[in-house]
Design a protein around this nucleic acid. Structure first.
Length: 403
DNA sequence: CCTCCACCGGAAAGCCGGGTCA
DNA sequence: TGACCCGGCTTTCCGGTGGAGG
């Protein structure tokens, strides 16, 4: 009997008319056949990379623009087009796209170079080799034949984040071309940190940004048009009610014209409507979507932090419950110490816990600022950023981990 | 105007678990 | 097998520092 019920359910599910026609259109990795409001950037990109088709080395170039302004999309788009041409005309051009923040936080020189090497078909162990050796293998591999290699480094700023340190990776990279005789190498840097360049060594700066392309944020109107195009492909007709796209665009523009965020919102809103058996997405769903995205982001962070960081967060939550104004680092540390002892876990130094607090701050899940209380010292004033409606749930998650 | 609190945050070095290589 | 290499996390050390209270 039960099985029959389940069968019916699935049967129903399949027959049910979905709101979505093709949900993939709203996903990040989808590349539309034409890109709106980026004509200028596309043609610049194309003209700068075109020499590669004659096996001449294109200039290094640099793409700026905040998140969701189409940098990655345009790059991938151009890469696709280029490689089409190369395939039909048999041109020796190798395009490599790497996102520098792949997997977890800080990516290192070794890993990045290893990643390049793998992209050109040279196996590299995950660790163990001297970094120098990885460079050599990479160079040797691409220098095997006469060709142009274009490296796109998405989110390059991640490579340099630790002020001062790290720009040697870029320095090395920009110099690599000189060590090749057959092959030629050029680099596309992509960054959403507008002040990134200022922090760089001038030598790197000049060679990396032989050419620059700027991606300005989309305005609400443009985002709306983008949404409209995508929605047409992604949803069945008459499933989007009046004002949904406008609201979605307005929310995304409120930040800084982040088209990706707008698309996420729309997709989640669609899912919400669908799950509640409606055939219409309403502006209200956009609000729900925004809340849902934020909630799951927070829960995800709480769940995946390393244990010591979880305990720190837990301490902050506990303390902020009966302490409306900010908490001091010292208080957090005392609480933290107590919990660690109780759970028989090693206790970290206050210095370290202080860093954990900063990290949680970066994630936006708490916030704090350094403040002086005169005679009573100088400390960070810490507040929780977790909405009260989510507090219990977060605590639950953390307690499960801590025990 | 000076003091001195309670921490901030940079630098450097150590440890550990992952690996290579000859 | 032992000598090395790497990244990530942590500890150690320590020079600051804004401003309430004297």
């Amino acid at each position: 009997m039960e099985q029959l019920g389940l069968n019916d359910y699935f049967e129903n599910y399949l027959n049910k008319k979905s709101i979505f026609k093709n949900k993939r259109v709203l996903q990040e990795k989808y590349i539309p056949s034409s890109i709106s409001h980026r004509k200028q950037q596309i043609s610049q990109l194309a003209s700068m990379l075109a020499p590669a088709l004659k096996v001449d080395r294109p200039s290094n170039l640099f793409l700026y623009g905040k998140t969701g302004t189409g940098k990655t999309l345009c790059t991938k788009y151009i890469f696709n087009e280029l490689s089409e041409v190369c395939k039909t005309k048999k041109i020796a051009l190798h395009l490599i796209y790497v996102n520098c923040k792949l997997k977890k936080v800080s990516n290192t020189e070794y890993r990045i170079i290893a990643q390049f090497a793998r992209e050109v078909g040279q196996e590299i162990p995950a660790t163990g080799l001297p970094t120098e050796e990885v460079y050599n293998r990479f160079l040797k591999k691409i220098n095997e034949k006469k060709q142009v290699v274009i490296l796109a480094l998405d989110e390059v700023d991640r490579l340099v984040s630790k002020l001062g340190v790290g720009d040697e990776i870029l320095y090395n990279l920009t110099r690599l071309n000189g060590e090749l005789d057959k092959a030629q190498l050029s680099i596309i840097g992509i960054s959403n940190d507008l002040r990134f360049m200022e922090r760089l060594d001038p030598r790197v700066k000049s060679s990396l940004s032989e050419e620059e392309i700027i991606f300005p944020p989309y305005n609400a109107l443009q985002i709306k048009e983008i949404l409209k195009e995508r929605a047409k492909l992604a949803f069945n007709s008459n499933t989007i009610s009046e004002g949904v796209l406008e609201k979605c665009a307005a929310y995304a523009a409120r930040e800084h014209g982040d088209a990706r965020r707008a698309l996420d919102l729309l997709r989640v809103a669609g899912e919400i409507a669908e799950r509640s058996e409606r055939h219409l997405v309403t502006p209200d769903d956009i609000d729900k979507a925004e809340e849902k995205i934020e909630r799951s982001r927070i829960l995800e962070i709480a769940r995946t932090q390393p244990i010591q960081s979880q305990i720190t967060l837990y301490s902050i939550i506990l303390l902020s419950e009966d302490n409306k104004d900010g908490i001091a680092t010292g208080e957090v540390f005392e609480k933290y110490k107590g919990i660690c002892k109780q759970c028989k876990l090693p206790v970290l130094t206050q210095r370290r816990v202080s860093d954990l607090i900063s990290e949680l701050d970066m994630l936006g899940i708490i916030h704090g600022r350094v403040i002086s209380k005169g005679r009573y010292g100088r400390t960070r004033e810490i507040y929780s950023n977790i909405p009260t409606s989510l507090l219990e749930k977060v605590k639950e998650v953390l307690e499960k981990e801590i025990v």
